[in-house]
Amino acid sequence: MCTVEKRGRVYLITLTSAGEHRLGPALISALRSAVASVRASPGGGALVLAAEGKYFSNGFDQAWARTVPYQLHISMRGAFRGLVADLLALPMPTVAAVTGHAAAAGCVLALAHDSVVMRASRGFLYMSEVNAGLMMADFFGELLRQKVPDAAARRDMVLRGDKMTAAEGVRRGVVDAAVDGGVDDVVAAAVAAAEGLAARGWDGEVVAEIRKAMWPALWGKVKDYGADAAAARARL
């Protein structure tokens, strides 16, 4: 489902296969395990998350959700809330390499990183809930308030279901760089950006605490679901 490799001081997590990378329990668990392994590994200075194929992630696994009791929906959403918490608490800079479409929870996953590098020729950021007739989680809304600074762009994404291209994302201050070429070019650009951040030699724990302080409302909505909170409960 995902791989972890190290390129210089950068850890690269890649969602594998040419599928839609739907965020069901198995993929969320694999991602959280990958992030935990990066956190526990020595010598890492930054993280990049990328994906193979046409999609970065097309959101929650709705096909799975239609076949299981509602309680499992709640569990899946809690696990994804925990993944966002894990990224916010990660003691290193993070970069999303948006190599294709990033919709709904997939869009949230991309924007949960410190920086976003996006493919210029293909893919979009898309909050599909209004078109799909689905409620939006509270922390989705809080993350979008923090990560989409332009109020009109935020309205258009959430209440109109508009799809944001890389060029529009750069113009609106949501995307840091739009990269020409294919998936490999986007990943290479994201790794280069992450390597530049790693070279700053920052204290990772300070980075994590500043991140939490910068987005306190978002952190407050996810912190009880993260790996740190789970470890603390286990010690009680």
Rank of each mutant, 00 (worst) to 15 (best):
D86L: 07
G133V: 06
A26V: 14
V170Q: 09
F60K: 07
C107V: 06
G8F: 12
V191N: 00
V222I: 07
R9H: 01
D180M: 13
V158I: 15
Q62F: 08
I74Y: 02
A105T: 04
A40Y: 05
N131V: 07
V186F: 08
R160N: 03
A151G: 03
A26P: 00
G45E: 14
D180R: 04
A89L: 09
V186R: 09
L27R: 09
I13R: 11
V148H: 05
T67Y: 04
P91W: 11
A40M: 13
Y55M: 12
Y225R: 15
V148Y: 03
S41Q: 13
K223D: 12
R172D: 10
R233P: 13
V206L: 11
A166K: 06
P42Q: 09
I13W: 08
A193I: 10
Q71A: 14
A104H: 15
A50R: 13
V4R: 13
D61R: 05
G220F: 01
D162G: 03
A110G: 15
D228A: 14
V187G: 14
L88E: 01
I210F: 13
L72G: 06
L15G: 09
V175P: 09
P93W: 05
A96P: 01
A34F: 07
G141L: 03
A132D: 10
E129N: 13
L144D: 09
F60Y: 10
V222Q: 02
A166P: 01
R22T: 04
V183K: 09
M1P: 02
W202Y: 05
A151E: 06
G196Q: 06
L144T: 04
